[in-house]
Simulated assay, not measured.
Amino acid sequence: MTHAPVPVPVPAVSAPGRALRSPIGLSYAVTALLGVVVLVDLLIVAASPNMRSFLSGVTSGTADFDEDAANRADYAMAGSSGLYVAAVVAAGTLFIVWFHRVRQNAEVFAPGTQRRTPGWAIGAWFIPIANMWIPRGIAADVLRASRPDPYGGGVEGRGLLNAWWGAWVCSLVFDRYASRTYDRAEDAEAIHDAAALVLAGAGIDIFAAVLAVLFVRRITSMQHAKALAGRTAPSA
């Protein structure tokens, strides 16, 4: 695992209208909020089997319907889902701020490697369907610019980028499917089956969040090291 860099002043770059800004502080905050997302996912992991266990007894006829137990199971599912939405919004917002910061730095390191302007590092996330691949392309460009030799053929970090992006897309699609299935479930058996989907979605989401943390740390560490080495594009 890549260790987080020790915060030290990042030298400014004397290029007109451009200057490096350290992403380290933002990376710590993003990592912390992604950790909160994982913790909330674990609450969902606990709530889903509890709901399934309660409904198994009801549907099989081995247990009488207990309204208090039903309410507790329902509150656990609803509460953890609400916390998840709040955690994802907070983590996602700060991630986009960090993403824009490292994209701006990439413009300083190797502007010729960037296919889209820095504004796309924010706007691309809000374009339906296109947000499934445009941010990944921006991330690949940032990764390239953050390497010691951005114009070489290095592959450092590409595997992690692909793994994180694939896991994130899978999590996004599966979570929506699981949530809609659970919300539309009306009878005990349907809710029981939908809770299994919610449980699986939480597992995929945890995996994606962990990979996101590793990716944030990797890009931050690469940019930090490159800034300290003074490897930046010539002044225009």
Rank of each mutant, 00 (worst) to 15 (best):
D64L: 12
P7V: 06
Q114W: 00
I127A: 13
F215V: 05
D175C: 06
F54L: 15
V85Q: 12
D66C: 08
Q104F: 03
D183H: 11
S221W: 09
V8F: 09
A69Y: 01
V97G: 09
V10K: 03
T220N: 06
F126M: 01
A212D: 04
A188C: 04
A167R: 06
T2F: 01
P9C: 00
L211E: 02
R72E: 11
F99L: 08
G159I: 10
G25F: 05
M132W: 15
A227Q: 04
L55P: 06
Q104W: 02
R144Y: 02
M77W: 04
W98V: 08
A130N: 05
A209S: 15
I134W: 13
F207W: 14
D41P: 00
A19P: 01
A145P: 05
F99S: 12
G92Q: 11
F95R: 06
G123Y: 03
L33T: 08
S48K: 08
L39R: 01
T2G: 00
D74C: 00
M222N: 11
F54V: 01
V58Q: 03
P148F: 13
T93P: 04
A200C: 06
P118H: 03
P9K: 11
A208C: 10
R147I: 09
S235C: 07
R218Q: 14
S14Y: 08
G154F: 06
A208T: 04
A202Q: 01
G230T: 01
S56K: 05
V8G: 03
V198S: 14
G123Q: 06
D205L: 08
R52E: 13
A121R: 01
V6C: 00
A12R: 13
M1V: 07
A32S: 09
L143A: 09
I219H: 07
Y75L: 14
E189G: 06
V213K: 00
V88L: 15
A188R: 10
D141S: 06
R136E: 14
A196C: 04
L33H: 02
P9M: 12
N71D: 13
I134V: 15
L34E: 12
S179I: 10
A202R: 04
N162A: 15
G166K: 09
L143T: 03
R217N: 12
N131W: 03
G203K: 06
D64R: 12
P234L: 09
A200P: 00
T59W: 03
W98E: 10
A188N: 13
D141N: 15
Y75C: 00
A202V: 01
V102K: 05
N105H: 13
A121W: 06
A106E: 08
A19E: 15
P16G: 01
Y84R: 15
Q104D: 12
V6W: 02
S48H: 05
R218M: 15
L43H: 09
T181F: 06
S60K: 09
S146V: 08
R101I: 02
A200M: 12
L55R: 07
A70Q: 11
A29M: 10
S60P: 02
H100F: 13
Y28L: 11
A190V: 07
G154Q: 08
L34C: 10
V173N: 09
A15P: 02
A188K: 04
L39Q: 02
A140I: 07
V30S: 04
I219N: 04
A167M: 11
V45C: 10
A196P: 03
L143Y: 04
G25Q: 07
L34D: 12
A76D: 10
A46F: 11
Y75G: 11
A70G: 09
R144F: 05
N162L: 10
Y182N: 05
Y151A: 10
A86N: 07
P11A: 11
